[in-house]
Design a protein around this nucleic acid. Structure first.
Length: 432
RNA sequence: GUGGGUGUAGCUCAGUUGGUUAGAGCGCCAGGUUGUGGCCCUGGAGGCCGGGGGUUCAAGUCCCCUCACUCACCCCA
């Protein structure tokens, strides 16, 4: 067989994993300061959850889900997005009883059957947050502020915030009809896919990248001109809070989301320079989802950001992958039969004192590598210090300590080794 | 699902109008007399030239098919 990860999946090797850890740590801390609690939901759910929650006619449900039947005949689906499971958990565990709104965050893998390309995979990872049980526009803005804070802390710049309101079940039908009337007069100028969209989801025509479609829809009515009183007031409030927080944004009447549950506020944080998939994070309000899942009337808002895209953005900002293995503080070089074993104990003792100590291993049983080879690995490892344990030194009850930066070297008694190493490394265990 | 691009050593890539045992740099391993890394020198290992079929005296090179990767469309994080 050929050793190969399935199409659209990838291994995150140690060098890149360090970037992931940095992003995860940043997400975790930003969520902490914003007062969100972590939730982890199952990798698979009953298929019905996504069919009802995300929408039967969305691309995700129609052609992108990994759906299978288990041995009990249940239809299960690998989670293609994060919001529906979180809301399901909110309803299932009656989290409204813990106080409202419930503020939850996650960072989990998602699965969609798509053709892979830059910034898109079949297994990918999203970090996100959901605030369930409040209509407060401040929460809409929080969902924009959180990812911005994450990117700022990571040193990712050059993104733009797009905001729109697509109304609610009260006002959207009217806008939809108005838009259809407008499009009907220009139907011949639309691309074939947009002609198909015209019936099923006319809002998506606004989102088309085809030049002809963009020209045809240049003067199309904007959703915000047709909002009902409640949606209009809410939209104004969102913009007011954005202004209060000094968040730069651009109103974009063409911004439409592909999931059925969105109401009122929708937004995207986009950047160029990552290829065609420039959306770093996106989200919006979904006031009807909890009710749709049988949980009562709990308006909510959330966002999700792509981890892989954050990694791409981090690299685009000039960040390098780390070394595969972390830099050790010291490298124990062993010489002679006795030292080959006792050196392991020295490394062990250093580790017990919190010092990162590495040794070089034999390629073949009973064949120690030459000192030169061990020193070469020590140098390459980036270790600050080498502990040279030779039979000669050990017979004197000492080992040699060598600074790898300037090559100075001296002997210390074995029982003083840990202290001597810490002295060299400085208080925190790292080189001062 | 639809298009374009690319597949030669672990990595980045050469490979002449088809013509001997397919190369380089980096990396890896071993040496350059006793037990010392970085620089230098010498040597070595490592290649179903993505796979299959075809044309030809002869294919890494030309043709067809296929697979994979990749970019884009669709859509989305």
């Amino acid at each position: 067989m050929e050793a190969r990860a399935p199409r659209g999946t990838s291994d995150i090797l140690p060098g890149e994993a360090r970037l992931w850890q940095e992003i995860e740590a940043t997400v975790r801390d930003v969520m902490r300061v914003y007062g969100y609690g972590e939730i982890r939901t199952p990798v698979f759910e009953y298929t019905e959850l996504f069919a009802r929650g995300v929408g039967e006619t969305t691309d995700i449900v129609e052609k992108q889900m990994y759906t299978f039947e288990d041995r009990g005949g249940r239809s299960l689906t690998l989670r293609p997005e994060g919001t529906a499971p979180v809301v399901r958990a909110f309803v299932q565990h009656r989290l409204h009883g813990e106080g409202l709104p419930q503020k939850l965050w996650y960072c989990q893998p998602m699965f969609r059957y798509e053709r892979p390309q830059a910034g898109r995979a079949r297994q990918f990872h999203q970090f996100g947050a959901e605030a369930i049980g409040s209509l407060d526009p401040a929460l809409d803005v929080e969902m924009i502020a959180i990812p911005i804070e994450v990117y700022k802390r990571l040193g990712i710049r050059g993104f733009e915030v797009l905001v729109n309101s697509i109304g609610c079940p009260v006002c959207r039908p009217a806008y939809r009809e108005r838009l259809k009337a407008y499009l009907a007069q220009r139907i011949d100028r639309l691309c074939p896919t947009c002609r198909a969209r015209f019936e099923r989801n006319p809002l998506r025509v606004l989102d088309c990248k085809e030049e002809g479609c963009r020209e045809a829809t240049a003067g199309a009515p904007a959703a915000w001109d047709y909002l009902c009183d409640e949606c209009g007031l809410h939209f104004e409030s969102v913009q007011r809070v954005l202004a209060v927080l000094g968040i730069a944004y651009r109103l974009d009447g063409r911004l439409v989301r592909g999931l059925d549950y969105y109401t009122k506020t929708v937004f995207e944080i986009v950047t160029d320079g990552l290829g065609a998939q420039g959306t770093l994070a996106a989200g919006g309000r979904y006031d009807g989802l909890a009710a749709e899942l049988g949980g009562g009337d709990y308006p909510a808002v959330g966002f999700a950001g792509g981890m892989e895209r954050a990694v791409l953005a981090l690299k685009a900002a000039g960040r390098e992958e780390g070394k595969a293995q972390g830099r050790p503080d010291v490298f124990v070089v062993r010489l002679g039969e006795r030292a080959w074993n006792e050196g392991i104990a020295l490394a062990q003792r250093l580790r017990e004192h919190g010092v990162a100590a590495q040794i070089e291993y034999a390629a073949e049983l009973g064949k120690a590598r030459s000192m030169k080879a061990q020193m070469k690995v020590a140098g390459r490892s980036g270790a600050r210090l080498a502990v040279i344990a030779g039979d000669d030194e050990l017979s004197r009850g000492t080992v040699a300590l060598r600074r790898m930066d300037d090559g100075t070297q001296w002997e210390v008694p074995v029982e003083r080794l840990v202290d001597a190493v810490k002295e060299q490394l400085g208080g925190g265990g790292r080189l001062a």
